[in-house]
Write a protein that binds this DNA or RNA. Structure first.
Length: 549
DNA sequence: CTGGAGACTTGGCCCCACCTTG
DNA sequence: CAAGGTGGGGCCAAGTCTCCAG
């Protein structure tokens, strides 16, 4: 992956600062001074007091169990009931602190900013093969309470503090080796150029490994990204063949082949994720295609005016709900009925299939093909098709709206949802007020224009002619402003529950967007912000106006 | 085939610096 | 100048997929 790699190692979380003595913790109504280890963990809970998490049974149970591990034997014997713990003063203290931070003077804020900048300059970059590259996450995650997503069995557990002794450093032999902080040493120093990470440690909640890697703007990430889209483009060339193939396989004598073919149909048509198996009880109960259970699908031979409708209802990645009703081909429907026979709701829909079998099959159909390539392919091809339908004479804001709509179509396909922003209603209202005002302005300006025209008709002099021109310009300007506002409102409304970022960043071949910008003379800044332009620098460089995905 | 380790991509949420507005 | 709103970016969890041992 590289020949030379030099960096300064990670930045560790700030050490724990004890509570001032005046800030008390109470047990059963009586003040109690905790030793630092238990106190630190208590502050994690105090900081989250306002969050719904802390009311959940599992969260409280997990927290209390892990908290007790940090207590002295004396503390342990005293503190036996979380309900008798009062973190109120601690919580108030942190709120006051954050308030104070907000109230800091300009100078102090500036000083903080400079300090951050210094840290970034010193630790935020590395040298990889003659290039200075930005590191993605050079700060080690601070200790705290684990918050899973959805119904996570481990929520509330203590995420322990990471020390230099936990860190494996990866760099090249001939580089200046990063120094561990004074009085400490690294767990290991290794020189493995078959991997891209600079440092790693094992996290204590799931026992998984975490990495420090380069920023998306780096050469190594960019090339990988490019490769990903090239694989998707190769799929484009053979997707017809594959579709014919899996339709044929719906008729197979073998159950495993039929299941494989129906699953692939879903992955292709609905852009479902592969769906690896997960260890039960270790994570939230979520599924993807191969791990769908009987309880997640319902079959309707007839629904309204449609035939063979399948209703999906399950929690996918990040416990985001996937809900969809779609008509399928008769043969798929019959197969599904067959798969469901004699099964319980909690049984696997595809009992003869998993991601490894599926991916092995895909690999045989096309080099480098895996389930997720279908998501990339379908996302990108959808964007390209949608953009082709754009009319050419639209104004710039209208063009951008069309782009966002195309982006939105992809986000819907990939089920990229978000919670409506807390400020949504309010900000919609504000926008509407602005639109109303602009409309009033417009009628006033039009009235003035009419007046000026009448004047000109009567006098026919140069001065009145000029006035007409000025008024006409004013009307035009206000019309444009109004249109812009209306477009903005439409865009925002349609975007209420849809997250565009994920597809833009991970699924849409950026060359399609770059080409579209060139073709319709839209400045690239209208589509990509600074970070995105950095990440997609390779594509901005590469794609001409006639690029075809 | 199974299970686990490891590496890397994908994903939603939240905070805060920055900008606009009153 | 304070208040309010927002986009960008950081955060870190949660997926995918490969590889390897047994």
């Amino acid at each position: 992956k590289w020949r030379f790699l030099e960096h300064k190692g990670p930045v560790f979380a700030a050490p724990y600062e004890a509570m001032p003595d005046r800030v008390k913790f109470y047990y059963d109504g009586k003040p109690m001074k905790l030793k630092a280890p238990a106190e630190e963990v208590a502050t994690f809970f105090a900081k989250m007091l306002d969050h719904e998490y802390t009311t959940k049974d599992i969260f409280r149970k997990n927290f209390f169990k892990d908290w007790r591990k940090e207590m002295t034997s004396e503390e342990k014997s005293k503190l036996t009931d979380l309900n008798k713990c009062d973190f109120g003063e601690m919580s108030e203290y942190f709120k006051a602190q954050s308030e104070a931070r907000k109230q800091m003077s300009k100078g102090e804020k500036q000083k903080n900013k400079e300090e951050n900048e210094r840290l970034l300059q010193e630790y935020g970059f590395c040298v990889m093969d003659n290039h200075k590259e930005r590191i993605g996450n050079f700060r080690i995650e601070p200790p705290g309470l684990f918050r899973g997503r959805g119904d996570h069995p481990k929520m509330g557990m203590l995420k322990r503090r990471i020390r230099p002794e936990d860190i494996i450093i990866n760099c090249s032999k001939d580089s200046k080796q990063p120094k561990a902080p004074p009085g400490t040493k690294w767990k290991e120093l290794r020189h493995d150029n078959k991997v891209t990470w600079l440092a790693s440690w094992t996290e204590n909640i799931q026992g998984s490994i975490k990495y420090i890697m380069l920023n998306p703007s780096s050469r190594i990430k960019g090339e990988k990204d490019w490769q990903k889209y090239e694989t998707a483009r190769r799929l484009k060339k053979c997707v017809d063949r594959l579709r014919t193939q899996y339709r044929e396989d719906w008729k197979s004598k073998e159950m495993r082949i039929r299941q494989r073919a129906v699953a692939l149909y879903f992955i292709d048509k609905l852009a479902l994720r592969a769906g690896n198996e997960k260890e039960e009880g270790e994570t939230a109960d979520t599924v993807g295609c191969c791990s769908l259970r009987v309880e997640h699908v319902k079959l309707y031979p007839k629904m309204d005016d449609q035939e063979y409708v399948v209703e999906f209802d399950f929690l996918g990645k990040d416990s985001i709900r996937y809900y969809n009703k779609i008509p399928v081909e008769k043969r798929v429907f019959k197969n599904l009925q067959l798969f469901l026979e004699n099964k319980q709701p909690e049984d696997d829909l595809f009992d003869r299939l998993n991601t490894s079998i599926l991916n092995k099959h895909l690999q045989e159909l096309m080099d480098g093909l895996t389930a997720k390539v279908f998501r990339t392919y379908n996302a990108s091809i959808t964007l390209q098709q949608q953009l082709k339908e754009l009319a050419s004479d639209d104004s710039l804001p209208a063009k951008v709206l069309s782009y966002n709509r195309a982006n939105r179509a992809v986000a819907i396909l990939c089920n990229h949802q978000r919670a409506p922003p807390k400020t949504f209603e309010k900000s919609m209202q504000n926008l509407q007020t602005k639109i109303d005002e602009k409309q009033n302005q417009l009628s006033a300006a039009r009235k003035q224009l009419r007046g000026a025209k009448a004047e000109h008709k009567a006098s026919h002099d140069d001065k009145s002619k000029k006035t007409v021109e000025v008024k006409r310009k004013a009307v035009q300007r206000i019309e444009e402003q109004l249109m812009k506002l209306q477009v903005q409102a439409t865009d925002r409304e349609e975007n209420k529950q849809i997250a565009l970022g994920t597809s833009k960043l991970n699924y849409l071949d950026p060359r399609i967007s770059v080409a579209w910008c060139k073709k319709w003379v839209v400045p690239i800044e209208k589509i990509y912000n600074k970070t995105q332009r950095e990440k997609f620098a390779w594509a901005i460089d590469m794609a001409e106006r006639d690029y075809e995905f």
